[in-house]
Design a protein around this nucleic acid. Structure first.
Length: 282
DNA sequence: ACTAAAGCCTGGCTGC
DNA sequence: TGCAGCCAGGCTTTAG
């Protein structure tokens, strides 16, 4: 389930192999992958085009092309790129293949069909629906403590839900949102505008530290060169997570059992002792 | 302008 | 052993 660090890892990997590679032929075998365009029009627009640079905005990959188009790709839950020999057989859930001019193919594989590709003019990327409303990059200069504090003050939503809103705080998914709240000792159901300034500061620092550590881990741990999904190959990434998916296990700080609740339609993990409940509502 | 919730998807797991 | 049903969750859409 790629969050910002995993997408960054994928972007860096693609940046090493794609620039100056030309697409000789593109094939899309699942129409919903490319949304508004027909697969035929989409593939025709990619034919003979060369990759220039690979970027990222939030969890979106930006594959810039010599045609002054940009292929915006979101991996969602299970999307991944595969870098295979030209004649490799497509896997069960491979929905697009780009045959390159070096005897290789870049395949897009997505078990759960949530991933999306959107081909737009590069000059219009910032105005697209998926990019337009995103919050500042969490590791960039615009994501200041002042920005986060103002964002919290303006919302009455539960902290956990606010952290998942990409238009407010960018880059966190369910895993890192839960980890950041644990690090800052904030109960996930605390209304955002009731988080005290000192804890907001802790959260601000935790968000950046967690994302930076995850990106660092992704850049040093060995990956499968054929599978570009941001996950780690031969290593257990889960070991770095201290609360996520650890219901019933002892808190690393106080040894109280980690609790699990539902927020939205997804699981939230936290320590009921370290992360004090907000002043009651209902 | 804001928040809440359903829906999209497949496969792994649980419990009967 | 088989199978129904739950669960995973990023994001869009719809409703309030």
């Amino acid at each position: 389930m790629p969050e910002l660090p995993e997408v960054e890892s994928v972007a860096r990997h693609l940046q090493r192999i794609l620039p100056n590679r030309t697409i000789e032929q593109a094939i899309v075998t699942r129409a919903t992958l490319v949304e508004e365009a027909t697969p035929e029009a989409f593939c025709a627009r990619l034919q003979g085009v060369t990759f220039t640079e690979i970027g990222r905005r939030g969890k979106h990959l930006l594959l810039h092309l010599s045609s002054n188009d940009t292929l915006i790709t979101h991996l969602r839950m299970t999307g991944r790129f595969l870098y295979l020999d030209r004649d490799a057989t497509p896997l069960k859930h491979t929905h697009a293949r780009f045959f390159l001019d070096n005897g290789k193919q870049l395949a897009f594989d997505d078990q759960r069909h949530f991933g999306r590709m959107h081909l737009v003019k590069s000059s219009e990327v910032a105005d697209t629906r998926e990019i337009r409303d995103l919050a500042p990059e969490p590791l960039g200069p615009e994501f200041t403590f002042g920005y986060l504090k103002q964002t919290l003050v303006k919302s009455s939503r539960d902290m956990k839900e606010l952290l998942l809103d990409q238009t407010r705080v960018l880059g966190l998914g369910n895993i890192y949102a839960v980890e950041a709240l644990f690090a800052a000792r904030i109960h996930p159901e605390t209304p955002a505008n009731l988080v005290p300034g000192r804890k907001a500061k802790d959260l601000y620092e935790a968000i950046q530290a967690i994302l930076e550590a995850a990106i660092e881990a992704g850049s040093t741990i060995q990956t499968d060169p054929e599978v570009i999904d941001g996950s780690y190959f031969g290593n257990s990434f889960e070991e770095a997570l201290v609360v996520y998916d650890r219901e019933g296990e002892p808190c690393i700080r106080c040894e109280s059992p980690i609790a699990r609740i539902r927020q939205g339609q997804r699981s939230t993990y936290f320590c009921p002792k370290c992360q004090k409940a907000p002043k009651k509502k209902d």
